[in-house]
Design a protein around this nucleic acid. Structure first.
Length: 781
RNA sequence: GGGUGAUUAGCUCAGUUGUGGCGAGAGCAUCUGCCUUACAAGCAGAGGGUCAUAGGUUCGAAUCCUAUAUCACCCACCA
């Protein structure tokens, strides 16, 4: 049995691929281009299992397309801009960005990234992801900054980007606005308290239920449904807010639900999205009491500077002691939190930048429909998301580490001065601009662009590296389903706005990796690292596992599946060993034995199925077709059948077997090459390269069909052959005999005449001393 | 509340879309054998399923239609 050191083999082959530039995009080639808009992973130190899973899947496609004759454009990028990077640097370098100068912090980020990025990328190379790593971008590098700013200005000049003071979704932890797409749900226990307001005119109690009593100071109105017979006569009067004692109008509003709470609700600036909407609808003057850091701004009260939750319990105490609470119960409700901080979001009126998208909903949906989604139903998620959009796309962030928004403001005439294209990339804080009309110094914009505002132009970034020879739409976008509402949505939006075109023709959506049905997460402690797996079983085993799930389906981590991959590797090594043990290479197609011909026709079916499956991005079917053929038809049956001829046949019989074994094995490893690139390359280098002449199996051509027509009678003959072999094996098993036990085989006349062309092989594989005509029987000697 | 997907052997999943069809498949696990000159981390064989439930269409349904249940994900709900 051939022993190989998998780690050593992997290293050797990686070096080969790199040295020979196997995955280089050929700029001069006339072949059709297949372009992939590769997801740039967020630099985080190490690749995790979810990455390994989805990048394997997209790589199956890339490798197949390369073998199928396409000039595959498969660039690589890293996402290292924005909050996740800030967090990473703060953690690893033990610093706080807000307590450093912007310049200082940015240079620390860039320096650290330079240190850790190569090692990070190595994980992708190890996994065998066949990108052309020389076509590389980072979402913070100079070129990307220039492009991102250029495309910002492009939209700004067209009036599609605007700046507005508006209550935006605000995260008090990172102290920055965030986008609707970056919110998550979180179930929380809270107190639902009914408190007493007073009606000014009548001095009667007005009961209002709330979960946010700390916002009483921000109360600007009270709503009652005009149809609410209990209270509608109060509409038009004034209410007195408890504790704070200011007057607010009692307004009639149909959106107030009679059944909910007490039927009366208070409007505060800003408790939630409803408040934002209510205040703008009734043109109320907001009373903003929240600071950016999540503390309250209520000077001359005991609540000043308290954090929201502290203020809540303090105010509840005070209400209680003033006997202003009539009812209180514990409820569990769902709140929106920022996905990166886990902290409840607030609404704060700040000046922010937005890309207009609400007016484009129908166009964005119809454009999305032009893209082929795999699986198809993922389009619904995209559509559903767009339909539910309430806000324009918030793109500015009040952070240090991001791409600066290239504008200045003149305080006097209130105009915005933007950078010129030739100045890009530019950090407005390091350049002084004078307002041409007012002749005074302007103020630089200190906000930066959100990461998505840049990663949404990855097709443009990669194309730019290639001097725009790669055209939009790309062939393919691969990504996971959790970022349909962000990355896919934003990329489509930008492409429509800038290019008036969809960004890609196809999009493939991969699922998640779960552990016993649960999402893997560090907090649950059920995380498996891909490095751990590949160390133990090799990269191919991991990829073999990743290929077992269909697109869009979550895959549960099962060690036994990884083990199955390992078994495949061992098996194909052994099979190859047998094939080449005695083989003499056939330069010409010899006269084929009927069995060999039949077998190759069976192989044709597999080639057809696998090719079709790969063309539909159904790599899991392609793999199982090839894998099944290898295991069931090639190893378990064909190899057993030809053994006798290989050892004892005439020259002609041997030649036919040699040719067929060689061709079939080559076809099998070609079909498996996209899935398990290492072992197939190893075998190619060892045994096939000298005859086939390509530098690597990964630039070999995808298998084509063998000559000969598969017909019903051919299938019938092959199936009968296998049927009889199986029958004999059954009888031997039943009799607890060895498989080499001698037999006398009796076949009905019909079968005997059908099997005539392959009778010699049948006799040898069943080890029959004779094959007789008569009633079907297997006589063991 | 809206949307989407899933439900097939002990476990993990194919098969279902545009063509419904003779006995429903695989891997793992279980059981019984076999050292057979590629492979015992292997080979050969066996057992195991009312295809979630209830109706309907049909000569015939895992597959098409209608409900229902359970699970998962996304969105909305935050007084």
């Amino acid at each position: 049995m051939p022993e190989i050191d998998i780690k050593e083999m992997e290293k050797k082959l990686r070096d080969l691929w790199e040295r020979e530039g196997i995955y280089r995009f050929d700029r001069k080639s006339k072949q059709k281009i297949y372009s992939i808009d590769t997801p740039p992973p967020t630099v985080s130190g190490k690749m995790h299992i979810g990455h390994a899973f989805s990048y394997s899947q997209q790589d199956f496609i890339a490798r197949y397309k390369r073998m199928a004759g396409f000039n595959v454009f498969y660039p690589f990028g890293t996402d290292d801009n924005g909050l996740p990077t800030e967090k990473l640097i703060e953690k690893t370098k033990n610093v706080k960005s807000k307590s450093m100068s912007r310049e200082e912090f940015i240079s620390l980020c860039l320096k650290t990234l330079k240190e850790i990025t190569p090692e990070f990328i190595q994980d992708w190379k190890n996994l065998g992801v066949s990108c052309d790593y020389s076509i590389y971008y980072s979402t913070i590098d100079k070129n990307t900054q220039r492009l991102s700013q250029k495309y910002f200005l492009h939209l700004y000049k067209k009036g599609k980007i605007y700046k507005k003071e508006f209550p935006t979704i605000w995260d008090t932890e990172f102290q920055t606005p965030v986008a609707q797409a970056e919110l998550e749900d979180k179930t929380q226990d809270t107190l639902f308290t009914t408190l007493k307001f007073k009606v000014k005119e009548t001095n009667q109690d007005l009961l209002i239920a709330t979960t946010r009593p700390e916002l009483l100071g921000a109360c600007v109105a009270v709503f009652i449904n005009p149809k609410d017979k209990r209270y509608n006569k109060l509409i038009g009067k004034k209410a007195i807010v408890p504790i704070f004692n200011h007057e607010v109008p009692i307004l009639g509003d149909e959106s107030a639900e009679i059944e909910k709470g007490t039927g009366i609700l208070m409007i505060c600036s800003y408790g939630d999205k409803y408040d934002v909407d209510a205040i703008s609808r009734h043109k109320l003057k907001p009373r903003v009491i929240l600071n950016k850091d999540g503390t309250l701004n209520l000077p001359n009260t005991q609540y000043n500077h308290l954090r929201v939750k502290q203020a809540r319990s303090k105010i509840l105490e005070d209400l209680k002691s003033h006997n202003l609470i009539t009812d209180q119960k514990k409820i569990s409700h769902i709140v929106n939190v920022y996905e990166k901080s886990g902290v409840e979001i607030e609404f704060l009126p700040t000046e922010q930048w937005f890309i207009k998208i609400l007016d484009k909903k129908p166009l964005l949906i119809s454009s999305g429909k032009k893209i082929k989604w795999h699986p198809e139903h993922m389009f619904k998620r995209y559509e559903n998301w767009i339909k539910g959009l309430d806000w324009d796309w918030s793109i500015s962030r009040e952070r240090h580490f991001g791409i600066p928004i290239p504008v200045w403001h003149c305080r006097k005439c209130n105009t915005i001065i933007h950078a010129e294209e030739k100045e890009l990339p530019i950090d407005p804080t390091s350049t002084k601009k004078v307002c041409k009309t007012c002749k005074i110094a302007t103020e630089p914009e200190t906000k930066v662009l959100d990461t998505w505002a840049t990663s949404s132009i990855t097709p443009q970034i990669s194309s730019h590296i290639m001097n725009n020879t790669i055209k939009i739409p790309y062939s393919l976008r691969p990504q996971a389903h959790d970022i349909i509402r962000t990355w896919a949505f934003y990329t489509i939006t930008r492409s429509i706005l800038h290019e008036k075109s969809i960004p890609w023709n196809d999009i493939i959506i991969s699922g998640f990796v779960t552990m016993q049905g649960e999402k893997m997460s560090k907090s649950k402690g059920n995380v498996i690292s891909p490095q751990e797996i590949t160390e133990k079983y090799g990269v191919d085993s991991l990829r073999y596992w990743a290929s077992s799930s269909k697109l869009g389906e979550d895959l549960d981590y099962q060690e036994k599946e990884i083990l199955a991959g390992k078994k495949f590797i061992t098996k194909i090594l052994n099979a190859t060993n047998f094939v080449f043990m005695n083989l003499q290479h056939q330069n010409k197609i010899p006269k084929l034995h009927p069995t060999d011909e039949l077998f190759l026709l069976q192989l044709n079916k597999t080639i057809k199925e696998a090719t079709e499956a790969f063309n539909q991005y159904n790599y899991s079917k392609a793999k199982s077709e090839a894998d099944n053929f290898f295991w069931k038809i090639f190893a378990d049956n064909y190899m057993e059948i030809v053994k006798y001829r290989v050892y004892n046949g005439t020259e002609e019989e041997k030649a036919s077997a040699y040719y067929t074994l060689y061709q079939a094995l080559l076809t099998i490893i070609k079909m498996m090459a996209p899935i398990t690139p290492y072992i197939t390359e190893h075998l190619y280098q060892e045994h096939f390269k000298k005859y086939e002449g390509k530098k690597s199996i990964h630039i070999e051509s995808w298998p084509t069909l063998f000559k000969g027509k598969s017909s019903k009678s051919e299938d019938e003959l092959w199936n009968k052959l296998i049927e009889v072999i199986t029958l004999v094996r059954q009888e031997k098993s039943k009799a607890q005999k060895s498989m080499k036990a001698e037999t006398i085989l009796t076949l009905p006349k019909k079968d005997l005449s059908l099997l005539k062309p392959v009778l010699d092989d049948l006799q040898h594989v069943t080890n029959s001393t004779q094959i007789k005509e008569g009633k079907l029987s297997v006589e063991l000697l």
